[in-house]
Design a protein around this nucleic acid. Structure first.
Length: 270
DNA sequence: GAAAAGATTAAA
DNA sequence: TTAATCTTTTCC
């Protein structure tokens, strides 16, 4: 069934050439690059692909994101036990790891106490319990009945705050990511969007409350701080009060292609 | 016990 | 622009 979906997508007019080339690209190429750095894992390896002028560059040519993640250590729980508004931008550039899959965080949103858009606004419920727990754990919930959304719980125990991971760049395990996503692409559609992160990591709501500061399962590793960031209002919270709808609590790595829609509401900080 | 709404995605 | 899809929360 998934296969037919994939095929259907592959006959989209504008992208047909790209897909075809990717498929004819031997799979060795893809596997060979999955354990390498971000730059090499997503750089088009075929000159034919490069020749297609419709294709935008996959990554910025700056050296900011070309660092291998291996030298970075797992973050301690202290790191997460601060206001979600402080934690959110600090998570940009950090790595999410689950087994062979490593993603670099490129876009986040902060959700806080007394925030009419935060899931904690109804108080402690079975679903939202992890949000009120100590920072450093995962909060995973199902959105629209089908998308698993990964949040990182912020602040101290008793405070209802979390940071939603909206987009990432692939670093390792590209093949696994593509398999789980059901899309054999290296373009931002692979990981730009919160539901795609949960799918790429292969997590379900069972992962809610999982500690991210202990080895094994799902971990958050330290990573390089981005040179520049963009800020904007959060996405999909029209039901909240105007004050919170307008709050600029969405953060993204400037110049990264791995950013979800809408992009035109993001801009440089004042 | 029922109904509404939702921190979205993919395809048209 | 819209259908898909189903859990959580709230209301009666």
């Amino acid at each position: 069934m998934k296969r037919s979906h994939r095929f259907k997508r592959s006959i989209k007019p504008k992208k047909s050439l790209y897909i075809k080339l990717t498929n004819s690209n031997n799979e060795q190429d893809i596997t060979a690059t999955t354990s390498m750095t971000l730059s090499s894992s997503i750089k088009p390896s075929s000159s034919l692909i490069r020749a297609n002028s419709n294709l935008k560059p996959q990554i910025p040519t700056s050296s900011s994101s070309l660092i291998s993640f291996e030298k970075y250590a797992i973050l301690s729980q202290d790191f997460f036990q601060i206001d979600a508004l402080d934690l959110a931008p600090r998570l940009l550039g950090k790595f999410l790891r689950r087994d062979d899959v490593v993603l670099q965080i490129t876009e986040v949103e902060a959700y806080r106490p007394n925030d009419s858009a935060c899931h904690g606004r109804f108080g402690l419920t079975p679903r939202t319990a992890p949000v009120f727990g100590p920072g450093g754990h995962a909060y995973v919930y199902l959105c629209y009945g089908l998308h698993t959304m990964l949040n990182i719980v912020a602040d101290k125990e008793g405070v209802g705050a979390a940071v939603l991971i909206r987009s990432c760049a692939p670093v390792c395990g590209l093949e696994t990511i593509q398999l789980r996503r059901g899309q054999k692409t290296e373009k931002p559609v692979l990981l730009a969007g919160p539901g795609k992160i949960g799918q790429a990591l292969g997590i379900s709501t069972d992962w809610s409350s999982h500690p991210l500061y202990t080895p094994g399962g799902l971990e958050v590793l330290d990573g390089p701080e981005p040179e520049k960031i963009l800020i904007g209002p959060r996405v999909g919270i029209a039901y909240a009060s105007p004050e919170h709808v307008n709050a600029l609590w969405r953060f993204a790595v400037a110049d990264s292609p791995w950013i979800s829609a809408p992009k035109n509401t993001l801009g440089p900080p004042p």
